Simulated scan of single mutants.
Amino acid sequence: MSEIQKSNYGQVKSFIERNEWPFTEKMEGTTNRIDVTHGKHKCAVKVYSTGTVQVQGGESKLKEALNQAKEAIENEEAIGEMLPFEIEKFPETLQERIPNIDPIIVRFIREAIISVKAGSNLGCAFLLGGASEKAIYLLIDAYAAAINDQELKDKFKARISGKYISKVFDSFKNSYKSSKNKPHGMGWTNDLEIKIEQIFQFCRICRNEAGHPHLPPNLDKGVLLANMGQFVKYIEDLYEMISYYEANEVEL
């Protein structure tokens, strides 16, 4: 195996492993071949002795991602800087799983992905925080509208009016904990902090660091990507709660 073939094959394999796609390897004469699957889609990646990389298979997001890796290798770019496949398709994934998702959330996430790919960690953090904040406000608006006692509803709205998002969320959390009815299943009664608050607070703090010049920004790309990896589930959980309060009254 030539040095360039060994190098390019190693980069392709590393990219596939990083995305955790099932794959098999074999030799076809002097050509390295990797067969990759993702869901119902399959592709074959061949690396020739000249170092040339070829991607075969039907059109799919999997093939698109593999072709992006191929182009990066051919242009001698750092393939390690490519985003994981699942993060690249977050906007489409959210629209598939949540058909009624607010378009502002999708746009902010799409822009956040563009920012981090361009090396703008601060821009990514700010946009991710914006998407999170929009979703949190949608939840709290749905919760407030569902409060069945008009006097208590007015008091709750007065407590959150004109406040920073951190204070608004604290008021919501306290009211939520004292409410008599909550979403059922999946640990909602006791796990608001785990399912919602941890990601919300991370996004809020990162947005503050990015948006306030008197705070020293210390945003590691790896940490950003790790939290982005949880973002789809976070938004799904928020919309599960929104749907509950659109269908049920809040009893305080």
Rank of each mutant, 00 (worst) to 15 (best):
I113E: 10
I199T: 14
E77N: 07
L238S: 01
S60P: 09
L83K: 05
V116L: 13
E240R: 08
N8S: 07
A65K: 12
A69H: 07
R110I: 00
G222V: 04
C43R: 05
E20N: 11
P99D: 05
I235A: 05
L62V: 08
H184A: 15
G51K: 07
V47I: 14
A65R: 12
D154T: 10
F90C: 04
G39W: 04
Q95I: 03
I98H: 01
C124N: 13
V47G: 07
R204V: 06
F85H: 11
Y244D: 08
K6Y: 11
L215V: 14
I114G: 06
L138E: 14
E133S: 10
N32V: 02
N174D: 14
E193D: 15
K134R: 15
R33T: 13
S166L: 05
E133D: 15
K6W: 07
S60R: 10
V232Q: 01
P183V: 09
N67V: 10
T93G: 04
L62K: 10
K155I: 12
K180R: 11
D170N: 15
A145T: 05
A72N: 05
E17I: 10
R18V: 01
S179P: 04
I113D: 12
F90Y: 13
I109G: 02
Q95G: 00
E249A: 15
P217S: 10
H212E: 00
G10M: 01
A125S: 14
L192E: 00
G119S: 11
R207W: 04
E81F: 12
E76N: 15
P217V: 10
R33E: 13
E111K: 08
S49T: 10
I105D: 05
F156P: 09
E246K: 15
S14A: 12
R97H: 12
P217F: 07
L138H: 03
I87R: 03
Q56P: 00
W21N: 08
A118E: 09
S166Q: 09
G39A: 01
K42M: 11
N8R: 15
K155F: 04
A118R: 11
L94Q: 02
A145F: 01
A144P: 01
S166V: 09
G29S: 09
I87F: 03
N67C: 13
H214K: 12
K63W: 08
K117V: 02
I199K: 07
D35T: 14
S171V: 06
D237P: 00
G222R: 08
T93K: 14
D35S: 14
V106R: 02
S179N: 06
L238Q: 02
K157D: 06
C124F: 08
W21M: 11
N100C: 03
